[in-house]
């Protein structure tokens, strides 16, 4: 019984909308009108178009780079909180999570003011006499997109890794070392396999949210770093207004993520296989 209110809410306002988005992705758009249909033309159009494919590839690569930075850093942080600081680790976790709730738009905007051509970092470096001219690659580039996304996603990736490590007793790490495992072997043969579900979730969070974000590329990305999220957003509230096409893109992002998730999981399993 207590499951009902939220359950119904989920069904009506999450399940049905996602389904209707799926249905729309099979429709056609004619001008501002939607024509019910059952066609994969939208999907085909995205895959075939050089423009869309390029944007999609860039999105995937930015997502992968962000995840490749976020997951190891979050893993190290979770390890330190769990096994070095133990009880005090909880406090660090609170601090990390607090940053997650401290203004999503604000933090992206702040990176623009830090990384900008006349921004904080450049003016500080110039003030210190380390550089003559401002570093231009810092802003409106993939570098700035990745720097910003890492800051946004890190707290989300720390959480599943930390809870997975809470389930690993210190005894197991000591047992491995006692039996002769070097720190490297300990990581590969015991710790990573034991926290594998946490690693998977952290990766999924980091990649999916990086690939699906459109505010970051809008505010700190340049014309050369448009991501699929920008194009999807355009189809619904902007210059494009082709709902079926945007819906198809959304599902392609989700599908690609799913495939990558499976691939990465296999890769990690293969690397830690021993």
């Amino acid at each position: 019984m207590p499951l009902l209110p939220a359950g119904l809410f989920y069904a009506l306002f999450f399940g049905v909308p996602m389904l209707s988005l799926l249905v729309i992705s099979l429709w056609r758009a004619q001008g501002f009108n939607l024509i019910p249909d059952f066609t994969f033309a939208n999907y085909q159009k995205i895959i075939v178009s050089d423009l869309y494919r390029g944007v999609l590839l860039r999105t995937v690569s930015v997502g992968l780079i962000a995840a490749a930075i976020v997951v190891p850093v979050a893993f190290t942080l979770a390890y330190i909180m769990r096994f070095v600081f133990e009880r005090r680790g909880q406090l660090i976790l609170q601090l990390v999570m607090l940053s997650l709730f401290s203004g999503y738009l604000v933090r992206i905007y702040a990176w623009r003011t830090i990384l900008g051509k006349q921004g904080l970092l450049n003016s500080a470096l110039q003030w210190l006499g380390l550089i003559e001219e401002p570093l231009e690659f810092l802003i409106y580039s993939q570098v700035s997109v990745v720097i910003t996304l890492v800051g946004l996603l890190l707290p989300l990736a720390v959480l599943p890794l930390y809870s997975a490590m809470l389930n690993v007793p210190r005894d197991h790490l000591e047992a491995a070392r006692d039996l002769g495992a070097s720190p490297f072997h300990l990581l590969r043969t015991v710790l990573i396999p034991m926290v594998m579900p946490g690693v998977r979730t952290a990766f999924a969070f980091a990649f999916l949210l990086a690939a699906g974000d459109y505010v970051t590329p809008t505010l700190v990305g340049g014309t050369q770093s448009v991501m699929i999220g920008n194009i999807i957003a355009d189809q619904f509230r902007g210059t494009g207004t082709n709902w079926p096409l945007g819906a198809a893109m959304a599902f392609i992002v989700v599908g690609v993520t799913l495939l990558l998730y499976l691939a990465i999981t296999q890769l990690i399993r293969w690397v830690t296989k021993w």
Binding site: D171, H172, A176, R177, D178, L179, G180, V190, M194
Partner: peptide, 20 residues
């Protein structure tokens, strides 16, 4: 000497068997 290089082995209170 680090634990992994010692000619001693330890049996833990709760076994500490690797679950995977």
């Amino acid at each position: 000497r680090l634990p992994e290089r010692r000619p001693t082995n330890l049996v833990f209170q709760r076994g500490a068997l690797f679950p995977h």
